[in-house]
Amino acid sequence: MVFTIFNTVAFRSEDGAMWNIAQPDRRLSLTTIPARLFTYLLENADKMVGREELLNNIWDKYGLEPSNNSVNQYISLIRKSLSELGCDEEIIKTVPRMGFYITGEMVSRNLETPQSVVSAIAEAQPAKQQSRLRGWYKPALLAFSVIISTLLILQPFRSATGRLDYSFPKSTLFKIGMIDTCPVYGLSEGSPYTAARKQQLAQELSTAHAPCINNEVFIFQSGEHYAYQQSGRAFIARCADSDRTLSHFSDCRAVYVFAK
């Protein structure tokens, strides 16, 4: 299996080979244990993987005895290898007292064939041009922020026109959960674990800035750093769903937060 990571680095699980997709001559190989560890994390992308789970599946399962700091040492080695191949994004996130997490949208997988490797090289984009943009502004979050900013600018003119509603570009919203009687939607589909965490964060922002009002809906989006480490950016909007189709909103109250 070949994993494509952040559209920048390819990793072959069978032999631990890693290379820069745009520059295939930039390559290195992970030894057995770090290759096995990285494969396990990639196969479980979008899932929180605990330290004990890694010890059981990477060491104990094969009759190996890990040292006290084995997991940290090999995670550090994998991160260094990714950086050496041009991937500056934080692919493996450490969540204190919980474990390690890889965002599923950063990873794709395919069986290695000559055609697939050529396609990956042809479609790759330079990592340095993307890392800052993706790290801080998820495309959906950025687009939605622009829309809401426009709504807030137009809001003062509401009294002059009597009634001003807003039509959002057609897109799919994914239900995360409920805040009291108000449904909460996200801009991307995540795992059950991330949905529960995002609902909790949405509840906190709602309580502080925009409590639920009956028959209105919340739209919430956050970066992975904010979701797990309370750092980065998050956004929540409470809107009236005028026609109950999730495509025509009015009277939006939006909150955008940033935590270092």
Score class of each variant (00 low, 15 high):
Asp15Lys: 12
Gly16Met: 10
Gly16Gln: 09
Asn20Arg: 05
Asn20Val: 10
Gln23Pro: 01
Gln23Glu: 15
Asp25Met: 10
Arg26Ile: 09
Arg27His: 14
Leu28Lys: 05
Thr32Ile: 12
Thr32Glu: 12
Ile33Pro: 07
Pro34Glu: 11
Ala35Asn: 08
Arg36Met: 00
Arg36Gln: 08
Leu37Ser: 03
Leu37Asn: 11
Asp46Lys: 00
Asp46Gln: 11
Met48Pro: 00
Arg51Phe: 10
Asn57Phe: 04
Trp59Val: 01
Leu64Met: 02
Asn68Ala: 15
Asn69Phe: 11
Asn69Val: 08
Ser76Glu: 07
Leu77Arg: 09
Ser83Trp: 06
Ser83Arg: 11
Glu84Asp: 09
Gly86Ala: 05
Asp88Gln: 14
Glu89Gly: 09
Glu89Trp: 12
Glu89Arg: 12
Glu90Phe: 01
Ile92His: 00
Thr94Arg: 15
Val95Gly: 05
Arg97Ser: 12
Thr103Asn: 13
Gly104Val: 03
Val107Lys: 05
Ser108His: 04
Arg109Ala: 15
Arg109Gln: 11
Glu112Lys: 03
Thr113Asn: 09
Gln115Asn: 04
Ser116Gly: 09
Ser116Met: 13
Val117Phe: 03
Val117Pro: 06
Val118Ile: 14
Ala120Gly: 08
Ile121His: 04
Ala122Pro: 00
Ala127Val: 08
Gln129Met: 03
Gln130Thr: 00
Arg132Val: 07
Leu133Thr: 12
Leu133Asp: 12
Pro139Ala: 13
Ala140Gly: 00
Ala140His: 02
Ala140Leu: 13
Ile147Glu: 15
